[in-house]
Simulated assay, not measured.
Amino acid sequence: MAENKDMKEAVLRKTLFQSKNMAQMYSLYRDVYPDTLAPTIMDFVHAYNKVGAKLERMVEVGCGSGQAIKKFVSYFDNIIGIDISAEQIQEAEQNNPFPNVSYAVGDAYQLPFDTGSVDVVLCGEAIHFFDVDKFLREVTRVLRPQGCVAIFGYWMPVITPVGVADAIERDRLQKIGSELARKCKVGGCYMEKIKSHLTCEYKDIYEQLSSPDKVHNTDLKSDLEWNISQLLGYFNSLSPYNLYMKKKKEELERISQFSEEELKKHDINEIFRRDLKKAWNVTDQNDTDVWMKVEFGIFVVMGNRPVFN
């Protein structure tokens, strides 16, 4: 029964990603990767390839609307982003200024590349949706002998109000705000498998990766300055939130109590907004006027070409 439930939720999540609105939210609010991401990964890659040489081909699987790819354009002659969502790919193509970058709808388990034809495979904030073993076997197939794979993601934000001079008060508000953000994010419908991958910062992915040489890096941090409206945009782009709201609406309809006003009472993002503004004593300010530092810890698993018996 639990397996059937997970399969149903996986189908629901796929339909959520097949949404133009979701693709646009990804484009606006999911560009959280620091400038240090690409050099960190490429330092590892260059251990297996000539340092300074521009490599031929990189592929990102689960590329969304192209947030991470732009960090790597100077390192490769050709970059291809693959995603199962046609809407995400359309959004990526519409906002792509790079002549060496292209996008295509594709399956993570049947990549449209010849065996041994790819230098680097990336997977950013997506592998937790995949069958990891099946995906890594396909990565092994497409990688050249000296090829590398890099898998990265992020989990909970730490939020700190801007403009609070007193360090003790700033730390107090950071703890309150970050805990509210944590409750908001985990309030969505996270499948247990997805949550377990993220909460351990992909350590389990690192352990499963059968690369002879591999690294698990948890040192990278985002460096963002957002207002409340932007943070809510990020939360609104999360598939567990959208799945939660879809289920809540269906539940209210089933008991004949649905209205937009009633649904809003159950909106975990709206509850977060209200509680944060109250805790930070900014209820009289517009969301766009309340600024904060937002820090995501970025975790990266890197390896040379995996080996399977």
Rank of each mutant, 00 (worst) to 15 (best):
T15Q: 13
F17Y: 13
N21D: 11
Q24T: 12
Q24F: 15
S27W: 14
R30Q: 14
V32T: 06
V32R: 10
P34L: 05
T36K: 13
T36I: 05
P39I: 11
A47M: 12
N49M: 10
K50L: 11
E56C: 09
E56D: 15
V61G: 03
C63N: 09
C63D: 00
C63E: 04
G64K: 13
S65N: 09
S65T: 07
G66K: 03
Q67T: 11
Q67H: 11
Q67Y: 15
A68K: 08
I69M: 15
D77Q: 15
D77I: 00
N78V: 01
N78D: 14
I80N: 03
G81I: 09
I82Y: 05
I82L: 05
D83A: 00
I84A: 14
S85E: 07
E87T: 10
E87C: 08
Q88M: 15
Q90W: 00
A92D: 07
N95I: 02
N95H: 13
P99D: 14
N100W: 00
N100D: 07
N100F: 01
V101S: 03
V101H: 05
V101D: 08
Y103P: 07
Y103S: 12
A104S: 10
G106T: 06
G106N: 04
A108G: 15
A108W: 00
Y109H: 00
Y109L: 01
Q110W: 05
Q110I: 02
P112R: 04
